[in-house]
């Protein structure tokens, strides 16, 4: 069981991140994954997010409560969602876009200049794929094979190769980072910092 939140600003492909990972897990990795996204006034602001609940059994409660993985690709999204992150959760950020506060003690943080890498590959629009590659490498929650299988239909056909390249770039960088850090482990929920079951706002 894992609860994951992808966050950033509109136009970065944050919803796609949830869709691709959810599709990879449930169609190719034999897991159950329920993806929800914020709609409405809440989704209007610049912070946008998509949520995934992953489980080996059927997902019952469809929303995340205390995410153990938070991916943030913008400062505003980080500021908004970081306080909800599980005490010993995993935080993944874009180095250039998020200036994190001092990291909470038990939280493991991984950072990647995903937008910069995407620009080097020719288009910042694929930063989300760089991030997904990195996310896949450091969390090991989903297999890279499943993620790549999930891409057709989720990204424009003519940019498929470029998207795969972007994914690989992030994935490889993740591998390098892991050599210096311990691999991330999703842990048992210890203490909920804050209950968010009911409040959406």
């Amino acid at each position: 069981m894992a609860e994951i939140r992808f966050s950033g600003f509109g136009g970065q492909g944050i919803i796609r991140c949830g869709l691709i990972t959810g599709k990879a897990l449930s169609l190719y990795d034999n897991k159950h994954a329920t993806m929800t996204q914020s709609f409405g006034p809440e989704a209007r602001g610049s912070a946008c997010s998509s949520q995934l609940v992953v489980s080996k059994d059927r997902v019952l409660y469809p929303y995340i409560t205390i995410p153990e993985i938070l991916v943030s690709m913008s400062q505003e999204a980080y500021d908004k969602y970081e306080p909800d992150l599980l005490e010993n959760g995993i935080l993944i950020i874009d180095t250039d876009l998020v200036k994190p506060k001092p990291v909470r003690e038990k939280i493991q943080m991984f950072a990647i200049p995903s937008t910069r890498f995407a620009e080097e590959l020719g288009n910042r629009i694929i930063a989300n794929l760089v991030m997904l590659g990195f996310f896949t490498a450091v969390t090991k929650i989903v297999s890279p094979e499943a993620m790549k299988k999930a891409l057709p239909g989720m990204v424009p056909g003519r940019f498929l190769d470029l998207n795969i390249k972007a994914f690989d770039r992030g994935y490889d960088y993740g591998g390098e980072v892991l050599k210096t850090a311990k691999p991330a482990k999703t842990k048992k929920k210890t203490a909920a910092k804050k209950k968010t079951t009911k409040s959406k706002k």
């Binding site: 949830g18 869709l19 959810g22 169609l27 159950h32 329920t34 993806m35 929800t36 996204q37 709609f39």
Partner: peptide, 9 residues
Amino acid sequence: ECVGHMHEK
């Protein structure tokens, strides 16, 4: 809305 907007297999 919840089921309508929820993605699953």
